[in-house]
Design a protein around this nucleic acid. Structure first.
Lengths: 220, 220
DNA sequence: TCACGAAATGAATGTAGATTCACTTTTATT
DNA sequence: AATAAAAGTGAATCTACATTCATTTCGTGA
């Protein structure tokens, strides 16, 4: 006969699953993917290695989900900013600064999601995630271009540049080396300023002779 | 008694060593670090796995050297551009475009050196390399600031932003999801334009009220 | 309380690939 | 040519984990 799970049991199982996710995220945040073996996750979650596999079919699946959750949360925050009141420039600045500030708080998590290698599946999920981040910035750019605040520019490339600019600038201070607590706000401000200037751009800079000018694309 | 190696032998050994490096680079260029196991490198170089270890103490050492050679070459090119004639803006543009164009030519190699995960030691070497790239850009920035071409700005952060911007923007077209060949020059132009605008910056953009303004730093 | 299915366990197994080393071949020295 | 050092070989070993599965423990329904 098939047994039905009591509500209490149901809850406990859901709780286990959640705890696994939390432990996995925590381990990644503290020491990168390198530190997040199944055995370690299991230990942290208070379960055995075998049990992990009752909840997730494989390590890759587990971490794709961990990455997904974290990204979803981050994207929500960015979207909220993107949709808020204010000039496009201001929203862009707030978005960059918010992201950067949060990255400072969970350095290794950010590092792992931004730079550290992992299983192929996770790599793919990561690239998707970056594109999603880029898309949010792209939407802000589009607004700004439409309103005439920003000059016409390729949103795909520019948004990738923005994401790249601040991740790279953050990895310096974040990664294995630096950690300067003091600079923090200073660095964040410099980064956002860099991105803003790049996007607003001085009219002066016409593409030189030989180059095909980057005309407005996908103005969907 | 210790034997002395004949010049011919000396040469053959040096040749082996070089062939190992070349094979390793080639495998990475073709299939990323994933495809570059010691056995594969050995096979490609026409040696046995054991022999690899006569030339390099470990896989990590081998790949740190492979990375190092490639970086050295790239840095030389960038330095040449940085020291060449022309306005700082022009040199910056040429540097960015040269790098980007070369990355397009050896996508896997660039991807591996820019983004693919690998041994910890290699990761560290990669970060060092990025910093070196950054330094070249920083020197151009410094010139531009000194000459009044660019507004005062934090060279460390700005150069990191530049490196990040173009690497990230390249990973899209370069990485696992490489699509259209056509955009190429267009993408390159857009990237360099982005960096130029960021650095030249519209005077308009005064930092908003609350923020500590990023004042001129290390104007060494 | 019993009997059975679900869940949990963790030692054993599997796997991928780096690294070693006893042995073979080549080279230098006499 | 004889001898010993170097260099080369590749199967065997080691390492680091993910994954499995026979066994145990727990929860459910009678």
């Amino acid at each position: 006969m098939r047994y039905k799970r009591s509500p209490l049991m149901e809850e406990r199982l859901a709780d286990n699953r959640q705890r696994i996710l939390v432990s996995a995220r925590k381990l990644v945040a503290e020491g990168g993917f390198r530190a997040a073996q199944i055995a370690a996750v299991a230990a942290d979650a208070g379960l055995s290695t075998g049990s992990i596999y009752r909840y997730f079919p494989s390590k890759a699946d587990l971490f794709v989900e961990v990455l997904g959750e974290a990204v979803k949360h981050e994207i929500e925050i960015l979207r909220t900013i993107a949709k808020s009141e204010g000039t496009a420039a201001d929203r862009l600045r707030r978005a960059v600064e918010s992201f950067a500030r949060r990255a400072f708080e969970g350095p290794f998590l950010a590092y792992a999601f931004i730079a550290e290698p992992a299983e192929a599946e996770v790599d793919i999920a990561r690239i998707r995630a970056r594109r999603e981040f880029g898309n949010v910035f792209k939407s802000i750019l589009k607004d700004g271009i439409a309103s005439g605040e920003f000059p016409a520019q390729d949103g795909d490339v520019a948004s990738a540049c923005i994401v790249g600019a601040f991740t790279e600038a953050l990895i310096g201070p974040i990664g294995p080396t630096h950690r300067g607590e003091r600079h923090r706000e200073q660095v964040i401000a410099t980064i956002s300023l860099f991105c803003l200037r790049a996007v607003v751009g001085p009219a002066v800079l016409a593409p030189r002779a030989g180059a095909r000018s980057p005309r407005r694309r996908n103005t969907a």
